[in-house]
Design a protein around this nucleic acid. Structure first.
Lengths: 223, 223
DNA sequence: ATGTTAAGTTATCAAATGATAAATAAGGAG
DNA sequence: CTCCTTATTTATCATTTGATAACTTAACAT
């Protein structure tokens, strides 16, 4: 039985574009960005030149892959959840990280993220800045509020405070790398990892709070 | 002033091979393994075909890069340090992770590691297995010993115990990724990260110990 | 100095690969 | 049914890229 060279079904421009983009995401997530257009086309079930009817160059296609992966999964509601003081901070953070990891813990997302990070793509850097600004900084602010410390207007965020938040983020994120990038069969359930990291963060926040109070006292004394 | 096409100095076979390998490591760490042999040769200051006098194929060269990176930096002494009961466990682990990170926290090592992980290289998988066997398993054994729990012969290592160790490993490792792979200017000193993660691990070990004791009791009761 | 060994270069190939132009055919409008 | 638009394919180009073969020259031994 020969492989009958079948023609791809005819789709509308929008549908085909969507289809190509979708397949490109999982293709590049697997092979890296040096994956070849012919192989991608084969996987989609169309001929290679068709790709160029939708995306002027391979670089443009990759650019769209980035946008799709990085931007489309971001939920502005996360920030509201973090700052919702009707829930206690511990539960709020656990809930936030549960939602956040539900959005990004997929093989495609994690691998595209790592590839783009390794290639030094500006979008990766921008994403990290975005995370700091819209997730970590609010978390730091909430930790301060809980401890009754001065807010960000009164005292700008200290590097050490940000690091406390980064530390938890890291612990959770690397779990994702092991599981979804390397494909390791990790035994611990994600929920446990989140819980531990949030709790350690809140403990660490206590130490930082003390530190900040000390500094403030020092300054006041020096004046 | 024209670029004078200068001939590469003539080195002994061993020296040149060493030189190529060394440059190949940092070249592939930067560009990924799809980096081109011509560019590598240019960087070394030698013509491209010369590479093939030393390494039959590009794949062979990459294989040697892996070996060099993964194997040459491994110190068998780490294991001895982990099991040296003349030092208290906390300090021992902090000392071990200080030495371990001194060995692997370089841009070259971390990036080669990530690239090879993403490409699903068997050597990466083997390395992880090696870490589990020669570092994490001994750490788990030491945590048991400290708590006065049965040793590995009496009761095989439980998945959860390994995970406690993996968790600390992760926290420390992702710090390295942020700093050396992404090139982020992380504020926290490494020493602090190590200390925190070791301490959390030892606390977690307490919980697991309790868990193991409970299970043992259950089993005994059921018999 | 002279010849031999081997390190290094020049020239070149064949396959892979991103991209383009011209030809084909599916589907809807009249 | 016919025409027209446009999604898709076929054929093809120009570079890039891993790899090889033949030539050149540095270094050392006699």
């Amino acid at each position: 039985m020969d492989a009958v060279p079948q023609r791809a079904g005819r789709l509308s421009r929008a549908e085909r574009e969507r289809h190509i983009l979708q397949e490109a995401i999982s293709f590049f997530a697997e092979r890296g960005f040096s994956g070849q257009t012919r192989e991608l086309a084969k996987r989609i079930g169309v001929t290679q030149p068709l790709l160029y009817r939708y995306f002027p160059t391979k670089a443009d296609l990759i650019e769209r892959v980035y946008e799709e992966v990085y931007l489309s999964r971001w939920d502005p509601g996360w920030r509201n959840l973090i700052t919702d003081r009707s829930i206690n901070l511990r539960d709020r953070l656990i809930r936030f990280y549960t939602l956040y990891t539900e959005a990004i813990f997929t093989r495609d997302w994690m691998r595209i993220y790592m590839f783009s990070g390794l290639h030094g793509q500006p979008i990766n850097e921008r994403y990290i800045a975005h995370v700091e600004e819209h997730l970590l900084a609010p978390i730091v602010a909430e930790m301060r509020a809980q401890k009754g410390l001065p807010d960000m207007d009164a005292l700008p965020m200290q590097p050490l405070e940000l690091e406390i938040a980064w530390n938890a983020q890291s612990g959770i994120f690397y779990y994702g790398i092991r599981r979804y990038v390397y494909g390791i069969d990790v035994k611990t359930p994600l929920a446990e990892i989140i819980e531990t990291n949030v709790e350690v963060m809140l403990e660490g926040a206590g130490a930082v709070a003390q530190h900040l109070v000390d500094e403030t006292v020092d300054k006041t004394a020096a004046d």
